[in-house]
Design a protein around this nucleic acid. Structure first.
Lengths: 212, 212
DNA sequence: CTTTTATGAATGAAGG
DNA sequence: CCTTCATTCATAAAAG
């Protein structure tokens, strides 16, 4: 069921890790090769589905909220068997976190006033910070970008000086997190994924019973 | 909740993808590998997603067919910021954000290799994307500019990994994005995803009766 | 464990 | 085309 699927996946993941040791791009083994680009595309495509699903669910909720259509509840539909209900952790630190030492140095450099860390400068800083922990030039670049932007913003909003309603603060549903794409519905196309981003796979009918 | 789970799943999916990208980073190649089993699992997960979408769409259609809900149109639910024809804007997004489908199309065009979208081309693309949401030629132009520039600037962080300080992180290479260079070698690498994984479905042959 | 905050990273747009 | 900025997104860390 749900958890099993997830576990299964993870298992494959680990297995994959080991296999990778002996595999090259030659691909003479039981593997598929994909570029980052393809990976990204896949991600986007999945994202499309996620978005559509989310909106449809919302739509459904709004409808059923007013008319209590019994029977045709789709609650069980949500129970994607492939979803981990246990919130399985995918161990992976995907974002750099400066060490205290690095932070101190960065802060120091920032305070020196050199508001424009040139590319060369970035390299220097990076190589220095490398001695205090894992870091890349991009990290340094981003850090300065963010540091600057946020220090500037701090000064701009000291008090409740709000000349106009510029702060829209993305008023979303309290319980919802992300709710981006806003156009899937804007036209009356009932089959938004009718294009080449459809992923329908007919032979998955065996999975459907999980919804029943 | 149901919808949350769905999003949760997607989130994890992305993390998986990212993880795999990171795995190879230690190596020297720019490809990702994946076993057939993993491929199959991924495929099935997406398929289930597709199925859920279909069912939701069908359900929505059947519901709206029964009631002629006038005022409770879902329009306001989505609070489309770009369709502020009702007088007052709901959520003002000051900058264009491609809808997943627009992105999909753009990405597709970009991958075709025709690096320099001419003025005329821009117009064409724009008019096509207009069907999927608000967009202007400038948006398209900027998108291609940025896309190209950023896909090129993917030559950072040679391998200055120095994991020692504190965090016992595993793999860390935040600077891992898209494929190296796409236009340079145009299409010299096979695209297994266009055949093995093609989840395309001409139309939704919905005979799902999960709620009839 | 859930919610909130801080902040690294992504990205649309503007300048040169 | 490249760089820079502003805003937004996502998540590690902190708070409840």
């Amino acid at each position: 069921e749900g958890e099993m699927s997830m576990m299964e996946w993870e298992k494959q993941e680990q297995q994959h890790l080991q296999q990778q040791q002996q595999q090259e791009n030659g691909g003479s083994l039981y593997v598929k090769v994909m570029t980052d680009e393809q990976m990204e595309i896949l991600r986007r495509q999945i994202s499309v589905y996620a978005t559509i699903c989310e909106q449809l669910v919302e739509m459904h909720k709004s409808i059923t909220a007013q008319q209590d259509l019994a029977g045709m509840r789709l609650g069980n539909l949500y129970c994607d068997p492939l979803m981990s209900s246990s919130g399985h952790k995918i161990t992976a630190r995907q974002r750099w976190t400066p060490t205290p030492m690095q932070l101190q140095i960065l802060e120091q450099i920032f305070d020196q006033g050199n508001g424009t860390p040139s590319k060369q400068k970035i390299k220097e800083i990076t190589s220095e910070l490398t001695q205090h922990g894992q870091i890349s030039e991009t990290n340094v670049y981003n850090w300065f970008q963010n540091r600057r932007a946020r220090s500037k913003r701090k000064q701009l909003v000291p008090g409740s000086n709000n000349p106009e309603s510029e702060v829209e603060t993305e008023v979303e549903s309290p319980k919802e997190k992300k709710a981006k794409s806003e156009d899937v519905h804007s036209h009356e196309n009932p089959n938004p994924w009718n294009e080449d981003l459809s992923f329908r796979s007919p032979e998955i009918s065996s999975d459907l019973h999980a919804f029943d």
